[in-house]
Amino acid sequence: MNKPQPLLAIRGLTKQFGAVEVLKGVDLDLDQGDVVSIIGSSGSGKTTLLRCVNLLEEYQGGDIVLDGETIGYRSVNGRRHRLGDRALSRQRAMTGMVFQSFNLFPHLSAAGNVMLGLRKVLKLPKAEARAIAETWLARVGLAARADHYPSQLSGGQQQRVAIARALAMNPKLVLLDEVTSALDPELVQEVLNTVKGIAEDGATLLIVTHEMRFARDVSSRVVFMEQGRIHEEGPAAEIFGNPKSARLAEFLRNTRH
């Protein structure tokens, strides 16, 4: 039986910061509608992996194929060339990214944050962009906050605006990097519920998280990264219930309490 081509295919990805090899050959496939969580200890390369997929980092080896298109680089006579700003920007628009530190545009209202990409990248007319922004803000429970500025919103609300901003662009894939790590404990759940909601709506998500219960809850698959490699991967129940490698078992023991 022929498996349809994956939505995202990461092949042999290697990345160095100077002399330090941070990703040492990562292979990962995501199909349409997959929700994959990446867990792993600090410094194992989780953030770097997401940033490579969003083309915020250059990488030295391997390919990232998104919906059949190799992104970030083109090969000419066997030599890799980083694409130009325009091409990179177009490809970045195909993936959404939600950051640990929200990174909202401080000079724009919640609606303005969501509208900017719709206006400048998708070139939608203002009224249409506003309507889409309102729909998405309502979807993340912030209909009444559309005209608030980020400084007038709680951390949880800011992060939900950031989620709306990423999803309003209708990306093929959404990357979420520890989206609750910067939040006060009482605000974590509202954001996790929002992510869960968009997962149930069928979005394809690649999630880096330290919230193990959440990962277990939403993920179709869980990936354990260790020292720049994927050390173990499988269904959430397997990874958490029946870890095969000693390293993963140890990691889970250390993070449970």
């Binding site: 969003n54 915020l56 700003d85 325009r86 920007s89 177009r90 970045r92 628009a93 195909m94 993936t95 959404g96 990214m97 950051f99 530190s101 990174n103 909202l104 545009f105 401080p106 900017l116 990409g117 400048k120 990248v121 950031a162 901003r165 990423a166 662009m169």
Partner: peptide, 14 residues
Amino acid sequence: KGVIEAARSIGLTR
């Protein structure tokens, strides 16, 4: 820097 990256990540050119 993160705000600039957020803009780049939704596809704004430099």
